[in-house]
Every structure is written in structure tokens, then in C-alpha cells.
Amino acid sequence: MAQQRFVSIGECMIEMSGGEDRLYRLGYAGDTLNTAWYMRALLGKDWSVDYFTGLGEDKYSGDIRAFLDANDIGTSHIRTVPGRRPGLYMIHQQDGDRQFTYWRDTSAAKLLADDKDALNAAVKGASMVYFSGITLAILAPRARGRLLGAIVKARDAGARIVFDTNIRPALWTSPRVMTSVLTAVATLCDVVLPTHGDEAPLFGDANADETADRYLELGVEEVVVKDGAGDAVIATAHERVKVGPKPGAKVVDATGAGDSFNGAYLSARLAGQSLQAAAEAAHAVAGIVIGQKGALVDPALLGSERR
């Protein structure tokens, strides 16, 4: 059987975490990269996992490529943007919670969709294409249109299209633009993975079931509504299940929890598991991730969750 291909599209950033005694640890992260990481850890070898973004020609862009290559995440389609660099963010503790400060004005990833041919080549032959609301938010409107055009072409060629709305209001020009784009884009997708707590203030959903219903009414085939430590609602036109995490998980660092949930859920579904079993696997992986520092945990820690 020919190898199938998962393509994740978005922004990989330099992460500076820690800060104790003014010492920081350099790493790499980003919502779509995090999900690609867990897809690679959990999918069998009959799948390849590629990451599509924009990077520069500087040392840190080269380091990111090397990091992805070393972890068997494909980089052959990454767009090189001269004069640009990866975005950067720092994490610090404030008022008992993690706070983020970003530098991404000259991020190469903001130009990832400026070359139509490169974009089409990146998704050609994909079995599944994954992207997020952040992917859309960092792009100029015309570039956003090019990205969606390539995604539609991939869908028409047989790819399943998966979208995490991942709402970040600060990245959008206005709430009206954000909600209209997210709603329109969802109509193009087979699977949507929203987070109820992010959606409710914008769309007025009273609970996770209403979030699921809203996307089903748009024609989405499969909706997976995350709700933090609450029950996830997984719904299709013919089936609905509610699955909560097992109690007792220790939260060390919640970074990447939702992204790891996505990767575990999607990999389980691609392996033929039911909605219920896939959601249980997703909660189990997210429970491991929140018990470790950083968004990307060692795949060996996933143990029996690996296929």
C-alpha cells in the first residue's frame, strides 16, 4: 500500500520559556506544528507527516528545518523567504498564570501563501490537510484566498480537510472579519475541532452541544468540540458522544494540550477507531502532555498510546 500523507500548514515560532534567574530555554512551537508532532508520534509508518510554513535564510530558520528533519517531519515544501525570520515569543508567569509576549511582525510564515505554485505543490497528493485559525489570521486577505484555493483543490483531489478554529482575536483586524472568515472556511472542511470556551463569547453558544450543532448546520461532517477539563462533544449527523478526561491528571504546563488532543484524535480516527475510542485516546495523550513542560513531549512518554 502506498504511503499516505498528512500535511500541516501554519507558523512555527521560536519559543523562549523558563525565565527563572533571567535564564530561558530555546525551543520551537506553534499550534499546527504541535499537532504535526503528535501525528508523527502516533501515526504508523504507512503515513508521512509534512509541515508547510515560511522560513528565512538565517541560522534559526536553519535550526528549525534541522529540528523537523531530525524528527521525521517533512520540510521539502517549506517556503524560503529572503529577508524574513521566524517569529518569536517569550513565556513568563504573572498572577499565577502563563503570559505570552510575541514578536512576529517580520515572520516569514506570514508570507507562506505568497507563492501559489509552491502552495499547490505542498498539498498535492495529500490524504489529509490540517490548518488553523491562526494560520488564516497571520495572512493578508489575498494570501488567505490563495491558501484556501489550494486547500479546495486538495479536497477536490480526495484529501480530507481538517480545521482547528483556534481563535486568537488579537491577530484579526476585527471580530466581524474573524467570525465571518471562520464560518466561511468551516464550510470547506470535513472535520472541525473548535474549543467551546473560545467560541462562546463570539458566537453565543450556551454549551459545547450548541457549538457542535452550529458547525454541523454548516455542513461539516465531523465536529470535535474541546472544553478544557470538561467533556468533549464529538458529533456527526448520525452520532454524538461526550467524553471527559480521566480524573487526577496533574497540570504542570497546559501548553499544547489542545494541539496534542487533535493529533491523538485524528491519528486514532485514521487508524479506524470509533468517535468514542478516538476521544478517549485524545484525552489520554493530552493528560500526558499537561504533565510535562513544553508543548512537545518526548514521543516515548506516550507509551501505549503510540500505534
Score class of each variant (00 low, 15 high):
residue 184 A to Q: 13
residue 133 G to L: 06
residue 96 G to T: 04
residue 155 R to K: 15
residue 117 D to C: 03
residue 172 W to E: 13
residue 241 V to C: 02
residue 1 M to G: 12
residue 246 K to E: 13
residue 176 R to L: 03
residue 234 I to P: 01
residue 227 D to K: 11
residue 175 P to N: 05
residue 205 D to K: 08
residue 298 D to Y: 12
residue 102 Y to Q: 02
residue 14 I to Q: 06
residue 25 R to Y: 06
residue 38 Y to I: 06
residue 173 T to N: 14
residue 239 E to F: 08
residue 75 T to L: 10
residue 173 T to P: 08
residue 11 E to W: 00
residue 274 S to H: 12
residue 72 D to W: 05
residue 181 V to M: 03
residue 218 L to E: 00
residue 247 P to N: 10
residue 253 D to T: 09
residue 234 I to R: 04
residue 291 G to L: 01
residue 99 Q to W: 03
residue 190 D to H: 14
residue 40 R to Y: 12
residue 118 A to L: 10
residue 108 A to H: 11
residue 53 T to M: 05
residue 290 I to W: 05
residue 11 E to M: 00
residue 132 S to T: 10
residue 95 D to S: 13
residue 88 L to Q: 01
residue 92 H to I: 03
residue 171 L to G: 01
residue 17 S to L: 01
residue 178 M to L: 15
residue 212 A to W: 11
residue 207 N to P: 08
residue 66 A to R: 14
residue 160 R to Q: 12
residue 119 L to P: 11
residue 25 R to N: 10
residue 163 F to W: 06
residue 259 D to V: 00
residue 15 E to C: 09
residue 30 G to K: 05
residue 150 A to I: 08
residue 83 G to W: 13
residue 153 K to F: 05
residue 179 T to I: 06
residue 224 V to K: 12
residue 211 T to Q: 08
residue 252 V to T: 15
residue 46 D to A: 11
residue 85 R to V: 12
residue 164 D to F: 09
residue 199 E to L: 10
residue 39 M to Y: 04
residue 72 D to M: 04
residue 182 L to G: 00
residue 222 E to I: 01
residue 82 P to N: 14
residue 50 D to M: 12
residue 110 K to I: 12
residue 79 R to G: 06
residue 223 V to M: 09
residue 1 M to C: 05
residue 111 L to R: 09
residue 250 K to R: 14
residue 3 Q to V: 15
residue 82 P to K: 14
residue 58 D to A: 04
residue 171 L to Q: 01
residue 15 E to T: 03
residue 20 E to M: 04
residue 176 R to C: 02
residue 167 I to Q: 10
residue 264 A to L: 07
residue 39 M to F: 10
residue 206 A to W: 00
residue 152 V to K: 12
residue 181 V to Q: 09
residue 291 G to F: 03
residue 86 P to Y: 11
residue 296 L to T: 10
residue 188 L to Q: 12
residue 87 G to Q: 02
residue 45 K to H: 10
residue 254 A to I: 15
residue 125 G to F: 01
residue 189 C to T: 04
residue 273 Q to M: 07
residue 187 T to G: 10
residue 287 G to M: 07
residue 147 L to P: 02
residue 117 D to K: 13
residue 175 P to Q: 07
residue 213 D to V: 02
residue 23 L to P: 00
residue 58 D to K: 04
residue 78 I to H: 05
residue 187 T to H: 11
residue 191 V to P: 00
residue 132 S to V: 02
residue 122 A to H: 01
residue 223 V to K: 08
residue 120 N to L: 11
residue 8 S to N: 14
residue 36 A to N: 06
residue 8 S to M: 07
residue 43 L to M: 08
residue 271 A to H: 10
residue 263 G to S: 11
residue 190 D to P: 07
residue 194 P to V: 00
residue 243 V to F: 07
residue 40 R to Q: 15
residue 260 S to Q: 09
residue 55 L to E: 07
residue 134 I to M: 03
residue 35 T to H: 01
residue 302 L to D: 09
residue 266 L to A: 02
residue 285 V to Y: 11
residue 28 Y to W: 03
residue 34 N to S: 13
residue 306 R to N: 03
residue 56 G to D: 10
residue 181 V to G: 03
residue 39 M to P: 08
residue 59 K to V: 13
residue 7 V to R: 07
